[in-house]
């Protein structure tokens, strides 16, 4: 039963709107440490420079997309155990299937409610305090 406030989260999306929405959802759930990155490369750079326990990443982004980021995370031992939730813009089964193959911990379809966000995070971490 992790407390939300103890989980450091990184939100990766090229859209400010989505980053803000995820951030506001996370804040509602009691998250305190929330970082943002505008694409996969920037996300990876941040993960290598500060401890991150949960990544919520969009799929379709310039430079390095969500799947690329997931693969990079899983391939780099120091960060490979980081929880990873993929944001998908539309119900794309193939995409989620591939993300599962690369070791995603869960997925979240846009648009999402705070309740769904909570449900998905809890599916990964267990019930939040």
């Amino acid at each position: 039963m992790p407390a939300a406030a103890t989980i450091t989260c990184l939100v990766v999306d090229d859209q400010q709107t989505i980053r803000s929405l995820v951030r506001s959802g996370l804040q509602e759930l009691g998250f305190k440490a929330i970082h943002e990155a505008v694409d996969g490369e920037e996300g990876l750079r941040q993960m290598l420079s500060r401890p991150i326990s949960l990544v919520i990443s969009d799929f379709n982004m310039p430079k390095l997309d969500g799947l690329g980021l997931l693969r990079a995370v899983r391939a780099h031992p120091p960060i490979q155990k980081t929880a990873f939730i993929m944001l998908t813009g539309r119900a794309d089964k193939d995409l989620v299937q591939r993300a599962v193959q690369f070791g995603v911990n869960n997925y979240l379809v846009k648009p999402f409610t705070v309740a769904t966000l909570k449900e998905k995070i809890e599916a990964v971490f267990g019930i939040l305090q």
Binding site: P2, P51, S53, P78, K81, T82, N106
Partner: peptide
């Protein structure tokens, strides 16, 4: 889908 389970220590585990 069979999502990758998170290892027990992972939530708090920093890089």
């Amino acid at each position: 889908f069979s999502f990758q389970p998170l290892s027990a220590a992972a939530p708090a585990a920093p890089a």
